[in-house]
Design a protein around this nucleic acid. Structure first.
Lengths: 212, 212
DNA sequence: TAGATTGTTAATCGATTAACAATC
DNA sequence: TAGATTGTTAATCGATTAACAATC
């Protein structure tokens, strides 16, 4: 099928569909309806159908969509089939946790190495080296790295970000709770825990208030 | 000022304003304009003004907003002033990283303890204990815990979630990449790395395509 | 005063939902 | 056939942006 443009809102829902589809047992019916998916995920069925229409080549009335086909289509659309190499800067606790997290492979992400200003000599995390930042540029050039993960303290995030861009990196996953200034062709995706916490604590405050 | 209802989209922007305001040096002007904030964060100035109108009691034409006042108002609105106690279930790599991360204090989050099915005896992370899950309920009841953080593998997330709800928890921060089924009065905030990765890899694919 | 800035009202935009026709 | 399901077109909803009046 030809590749359609999808909005960010749609894009963000696709991983949920994929995760859900993968939980269905092998021996279940090979077909799944948008209705069933919507119910399982607590969403509207029209929304599911519209989203699926953008990435798959359609289902069959009364039958639904071929489950395996959907998994394949969504995976491919999201680029999980071809792996992306990334580097990580900031080998603190969070950085090391991400470096050692094996779950990213399933999403086609491969963290090659971590960089730090003060790496413990020869230290590796799950076989992945922690290298002095000075060697970042040459490493990125030789390995043609396009994605960078920032897990340094806020104060240094912009500096690291600029450096990554100088290394040819085009997409940045930012775990530091600060806004990063970048040129238009670079994408910054903020993994902002503060944002999540805001939503959570707002809910708790409302709950507490209600109780009174 | 009286407390207004804010939409989720507004709520998610508030932490950025706060973070930015805190980066301004003490000795700078005590006033800041929405225009300046908008420029610094790459947003529309009307949007900033509208958002601020919801949480502060206003700025002065030609002058702007009192910086200290804004910080105070947003912090209070987001509940960063009164701390929330939370527990974490799943003391794997990510769980331990979060447990040891001191940055959450600034957001009023206090992780009291972690729970795991198979905790190393007497192990603590930064002074915080890792306790067998069996003791979760009594712990939550005695400490009146309202927030739970899930960092277990996907297969066990729903089970842990149900257990948390049984313990009286009202807000769940879910790091497992699965949809959790919960009653209407419980809030689940998904910290879905898969979602972020989807946005990032989509951007890279577009970049690569463009180059060809 | 003039101009920068706030705050509000109206217009636009995009995304979600509802209604319905098509299909097996 | 009847009914479940898909897919499309139209209506609604909410959020963002634009225009403008108010203010210091």
């Amino acid at each position: 099928m030809e590749r359609k443009e999808v909005s960010k809102s749609v894009l963000k829902r696709l991983p949920s569909y994929l995760a859900y589809l993968k939980t269905i047992p092998e021996d279940a019916s090979p077909y799944i309806s948008a209705t069933a998916m919507a119910n399982a995920l607590g969403m509207g069925e029209v929304q599911v159908r519209k989203d699926l229409a953008l990435v798959s080549d359609g289902g069959r009335p009364k039958i639904g969509y071929l489950r395996e086909g959907l998994i394949e289509d969504i995976s491919q659309f999201l680029g999980y089939d071809n792996t992306t190499d990334a580097i990580l800067v900031g080998a603190g606790k969070l950085g090391q946790a991400l470096l050692g997290y094996s779950g990213f492979e399933a999403y086609g992400l491969n963290i090659l190495a971590a960089f730090d200003t003060n790496p413990k000599a020869d230290k590796t995390v799950d076989g992945k080296p922690i290298i002095p930042v000075e060697r970042m540029e040459s490493f990125c050039r030789t390995n043609k790295v396009l994605m960078g993960i920032i897990t340094v303290p806020s104060e240094h995030a912009q500096e690291v970000c600029d450096r990554m861009i100088a290394c040819g990196i085009k997409a940045i996953w930012n775990f530091a709770p600060v806004h990063l200034d970048v040129p238009g062709n670079i994408l910054v995706q903020n993994e902002n825990m503060a944002t999540s916490l805001a939503v959570l604590s707002m809910h708790l405050q409302a709950q507490i208030k209600e109780k009174k």
